[in-house]
Computed example of a mutant assay.
Amino acid sequence: MIQIKRCGYNITHENGFTVDRPDGSGDFLFVLFRSKMEVELQGKPVITEQNSYILYGRNSKQYYKVIEQPMVHDWFHFDSDEMDELCGQLGLPLDTIITAHDPFYISRKVNELQTEHIHNGPYKREIMDATVRCLLMKLSEMRTRIDSNHHISKHYDQFINLRNVIYNSPSVSYSIDELATSMNMSRSHFQQLYKEIFGVSVMNDIIRNRLEFALHLLENSVHDIKTIAELCGYDNEVHFMRQFKKSVHLTPTQYRRKYRSPAN
Rank of each mutant, 00 (worst) to 15 (best):
D147M: 10
F198M: 06
D224C: 03
I197F: 12
A180R: 04
H151V: 05
R125V: 00
L193D: 07
S107R: 14
E141G: 04
L90R: 11
D235W: 03
P122H: 06
K65R: 15
F244Y: 11
E68N: 11
N264C: 02
R260E: 14
L135A: 05
K61P: 11
L41N: 08
G26N: 10
N236W: 05
P103S: 03
R6A: 00
F240S: 07
H151Y: 12
D235Q: 08
Q191T: 10
D235S: 08
H13M: 04
I160M: 13
N51W: 02
G57Y: 09
F78W: 12
I2C: 01
T99C: 07
G26Q: 10
D177G: 04
I67C: 09
N184W: 02
D81G: 14
T253W: 06
I146K: 10
S52Y: 14
S188A: 09
T48A: 11
K109N: 06
N10Q: 14
D224T: 00
I146R: 09
R6W: 08
G16N: 13
V248R: 15
M183W: 05
L29E: 11
T48H: 07
E38M: 13
R242L: 14
L211N: 12
K109D: 00
N15F: 05
Y167V: 00
V238Y: 15
G233T: 07
A130T: 06
I152P: 12
H13R: 15
L32T: 06
R260K: 12
Q191A: 10
Q254R: 12
Y167F: 10
D147N: 13
Q69F: 03
M142C: 03
V31K: 01
N236P: 09
V165W: 09
L135I: 02
T227Y: 06
G57R: 14
G57S: 12
E68C: 02
G57I: 05
L86N: 01
M83W: 04
D27S: 10
L113F: 02
Q3D: 08
L215K: 15
Y105A: 06
K5M: 07
H151I: 04
E212Y: 05
H239L: 11
R210Y: 01
P22D: 06
S261C: 01
N204K: 14
N264D: 05
I98L: 15
K5S: 02
